[in-house]
Design a protein around this nucleic acid. Structure first.
Lengths: 155, 155
DNA sequence: CGGAAACCCTAGGAATTCTCTCGGATTAAC
DNA sequence: GTTAATCCGAGAGAATTCCTAGGGTTTCCG
């Protein structure tokens, strides 16, 4: 019940690109590293799965950098987290098929699947635009509600 | 985005106690270990935080065993998972207060808090009675809905 | 062309965590 | 007092995570 720091860094990176790369649409890792106080070499590693999943596009060579491959409103936190954490399932049920002869296993499979669905439902309901405070034309209308604004004491 | 196997074993153990200990209310770890094919010594370690959190009560000495400290319908999966995984927060935000001068951090804090709330909301909506298929008097009426019966292909 | 600045790739190492084992201590039934 | 159970502390081995390091490749700019 824990998200690794790789996922957190990936989220911070994507938010930074979304927020500061909006003018030219492009930002270098070096700049992000300085502003977020993260090692450049580590960021290079964080950025790779994000590239592989097609969430970012890169401009190589001097003056290059990274750009969002899609508009920030079309990238969800779930996209980023799943890319960063790898494709491994949230929880495996000891094979998930062979050992289900026991009394209690089938209900636990349903339980874990439901948990995974609950998590996905939340993280896919928050877009990068929400997180970066980018004012977007509100086409759908359910963009920000998952953040639960005003409900908690954190605002 | 992953639950350790300690949490899974704890859940299996609690379900087993709920299901098989219902008559006398008591079952020994040895019996659980044999039926679930888990090492007894490992189960002893799994059971410890469950005791500390007051979810189980023990009867020491020969013929002893473990009993649910409360009715299965009053123990949630969240209680078990939080006890087994330790009290660590789902995700920490690099101090959660000091470094929030950055542009993007406050929104991520809200995001992580919301995720934690979503997870808690799910796991606290499923009781041990649901998981163990114990027929209980349905007082509240929202006991089993979180399992999403019939919605998925897993039944 | 050649240097500089960026992206890109592979390899690992220190630290941590996870999974599980071991040997025993304590308690209570018989 | 033997036996069967709960308890307790200390790890070992393996895996994972977090991060660093060193280079290779691409492109800009003079």
């Amino acid at each position: 019940m824990l998200i690794s720091s790789k996922g957190r860094y990936a989220l911070r990176l994507m938010i930074h690109i979304a927020a500061f790369g909006e003018s030219g649409g492009k930002i270098s890792l070096r700049e992000v590293a300085e502003r977020e106080s993260i090692s450049l070499k580590y960021l290079e590693q964080v950025v790779r799965p994000l590239m592989q999943e097609g969430l970012l596009r890169s401009v190589r060579g001097k003056g290059g950098g990274y750009v969002l491959a899609r508009p920030a409103s079309e990238i969800t936190a779930g996209d980023i987290l799943r890319a960063a954490e790898g494709q491994r399932p949230t929880v495996a049920c000891e094979g998930l098929e062979g050992s289900c002869g026991r009394v209690d296993l089938c209900s636990t499979v349903r339980f874990w699947t439901g948990l995974e669905r609950a998590i996905d439902s939340y993280v896919d309901g928050v877009t990068l635009a929400d997180l970066a405070h980018i004012p977007e034309i509100d086409l759908i209308g359910d963009g920000g509600e998952a953040l639960g604004e005003g409900k908690g004491p954190i605002g």
